[in-house]
Amino acid sequence: MTKENNEFISVGAVDHFLVQIGRVVEIGGRQIAVFRLSDNRIFAAVNKNPHPKGGPLAEGIVSGHYLYDPLYDWKIDLTTGLVQAPDTGQAQMVPVKIEDGQVWIGAGELQTV
């Protein structure tokens, strides 16, 4: 991983992230779950389920732009982090950008989450 002056950290090439499979990367001691959707958009969140009992987000099942948590039967919108009704909560999403085939995670945001 390399750091850039605008507080984004490179976590690898887009092709290293499998479609619809969560992958955990570590930045500054924090686990970040990275998800590549079937349309090649990439989203990232702190790897902590917003359910009161917690658990990893990266093990969820991706379909469309939703993450399905098989442990608690929750549906989370990866574009916003919002847990879908009837459940409530919000995953802590982290900014992502793609440049020159590389995935960059907004490390500056990790200081506040």
Rank of each mutant, 00 (worst) to 15 (best):
V62F: 07
D87A: 15
E26F: 03
N5C: 02
V62M: 08
T112G: 00
W74P: 03
V94S: 11
L18D: 14
T112Q: 13
T2K: 13
D69A: 00
F43Y: 15
V103T: 05
K48W: 12
I98C: 04
K53D: 14
T79A: 15
E7G: 09
V113F: 12
I21E: 13
W74F: 10
T88C: 08
P50V: 08
A13F: 06
V11Q: 09
R23E: 14
G28K: 09
F43D: 03
G55I: 04
R30C: 11
V96L: 11
G64E: 05
D39Q: 09
L110Q: 13
F17G: 03
D39F: 02
A107H: 05
G22T: 04
R41H: 12
N6D: 15
A13P: 01
N6S: 09
K3T: 15
R23D: 05
L37R: 01
G89C: 07
V25R: 03
F35H: 08
H16M: 09
G28D: 13
Q31F: 10
L82D: 13
L18I: 08
G28Q: 09
P52V: 07
P56F: 04
E4W: 06
D73Y: 07
G22R: 05
G12T: 06
W104Q: 03
V103P: 11
G54P: 04
G81P: 07
M1Y: 11
V94H: 07
T79M: 11
